[in-house]
Nucleic acid binder design. Structure first.
Lengths: 197, 197, 197, 197
DNA sequence: GATGAATGAGTCTTCATTCAT
DNA sequence: GATGAATGAAGACTCATTCAT
């Protein structure tokens, strides 16, 4: 830990502290303490408290997007890709609860200064979904009357709300694999051409 | 406006102010000004700033739940109920953008005092969905291998994420009716017994 | 209680409330509640919060002074008068703890606005003591090199500090009669011409 | 002044400000200004406004007690010790009017937080007196029917009330030496075995 | 680069006082 | 006279940020 880059130490500390207290109830001094640096040192690496949240989000989202795109690469069928997306997304949330909590909760809240930042990376992540749908539509695999822009939101929203369950609820009623399977089933059924609806 | 109950004036003002600035960037004095009462008057009706948010949420959710339950009463088919739920939910968001923003954004913050409050009313709202699903399963209308607890989260999550689009995005790419129709189609397809998945 | 004069009800309530919380930690509304009148009613009888304390002091001191002077009237010897003063003072404190606490504690504290008010009545009370001393000196009973102005302060101070013991300490180590006897003995010994010092 | 420890600067400033306005009419910001530090700096050294008063009292009383004990050390006779106690006490008051006023006036207020603090140090100071009396009684110098616990209160009370005169009254009718001499004479006369009473 | 003591702007909340009824 | 809802001025305290070392 000590030898690590101070920038990374602070980001890691911020994830922990923000997840525990929320952005507005977190103190820069607590992050500094958690990162084992002086209060002033935080300001050598970050412009201000907001900047910690923004850069935290951007850097972590980059990793997440890169990882998710890599996962998609080796899967041929678009329906399998969607199933895989769901599994990977929910597992990621389960394995990085603090980060997930910060991204889900804090970033929604800090609407004012977040709007622009949130969108760029967030939409890039969402577009992984719409790209799969468009690909499926192009190859005749999926119905073409489904609007990819609505689909990506709905699909992500469903996963995101399930994430909440995994992040906040203490009881473990559903396992991740099963949840991912059910939710992608709903959506794939809606995408396939011969489903009756 | 003047003749209105001060309690209601303050709640209305808080919705407006919280939606504009977020809870933590809102000043009690600004709420008071917007409600045309003195700062101290706020504290005759609410215990403190947190209490404004809590009571705002509880009271508005009560209205929303009552309204939604009323809407469901006259619809016989469970699939029609789900479609209607989607339409009513998205219309409500569109027509009460500020309230929607406060509920969506501020109430995600995980501060201690919110958790319990959020849950009670929020889960009551979610359970309107699972009740529909269970009813459909009981009457043989819906597949019985779908877990209502997962379904309600997924369905709500999809609607909630679409709401974000309507609340935050300025451009109006999709209309509410169409969005409600598409998203409920996905889920209904997943619920019907003879869909291939 | 109800039929009583509201002025008196408020004074009585103030004694109770000030004794419990201190002047600055007492609320006018609490006094009003204790007196079973509306908040605004207090201001029909008193100019403001300070005025309650001032008038409380003046009126109660008047009673105390009248009572003490009456007690002195029938006692021929100055040394007996001093002994009696001590007994009556300490008994009064014991029987009116709340009032004693307010006069001792709060009136010392509120120096700023109290100074002038305090003095008039307080000095009148002190002068009962110096009058006794002067009388004793005039009749050759007491030494004439004792300064009555110093004596009254010392004698009162000793009684006052003993009062603290009775007001604040819960344990009852000394009884009032004995304490009054000892303290007046000290001072009378000092006053008598043939004490060796 | 500037080079001094900030803690000490704040204590000194608080003595001045509290003496001038009383505790409840003093502003933390005024203390800060007087101490030439920022408002927030006060809170680096003291928990809150109450804490300033408590620590002020404890630290100054420590000095006073140490000083008084030192004064007593070189005096052989108990009656001389009492005389010296009176002189030193009254001189201390005269030379540190502000501190004396704060200790006398503010610490009488019976607020909850004060009680325990007041007692510990205050009783230690009082016990210097009773220790002298007990010593005099043990060596046969003083009468043994005098209760040291009552004596210390009476003696201190007399001095304390005289202090008030010196602190509050502007006119200088009596000088300190004479006052100390008279008041200790009263009490010593009461203590000596062959005084007639 | 690193530190952490110092800063002071900013806000929630209280409560004495008023005044329309 | 009596009420008590409403007022709004005032202040303790916090904490993001700076800067001398």
């Amino acid at each position: 830990m000590r030898g690590e880059d101070k920038h990374d130490r602070i980001i890691k500390a911020a994830i922990k502290v923000f997840a525990k207290n929320g952005f507005y109830n977190s103190r820069v001094s607590e992050i500094a303490k958690e990162a084992q640096v002086a209060d002033g040192t935080v300001y050598l690496y970050f412009k201000n408290k907001d900047d910690i949240l923004i850069r935290l989000f951007e850097e972590e989202m980059d990793k997440i997007i890169t990882n998710m795109k890599g996962e998609m690469d080796n899967i041929p069928n678009p329906d399998e890709k969607l199933r895989r997306f769901a599994v990977v997304h929910l597992n990621m949330v389960r394995e990085n609860k603090s980060l997930a909590e910060v991204i889900q909760v804090e970033l929604r809240q800090s609407s004012k200064f977040m709007h622009e930042y949130k969108n760029r990376k967030f939409i890039e992540y969402l577009n992984i979904i719409s790209t799969i749908v468009k690909e499926g539509q192009r190859t005749g695999y999926f119905r073409t009357d489904i609007m990819p822009g609505l689909f990506k939101r709905s699909f992500f929203g469903a996963l995101d709300e399930l994430s909440n369950m995994f992040v906040f609820s203490t009881k473990r009623k559903y396992n991740v694999e099963m949840a991912a399977d059910q939710v992608s089933s709903f959506f794939i059924a809606g995408l396939l051409p011969d489903s009756n609806h």
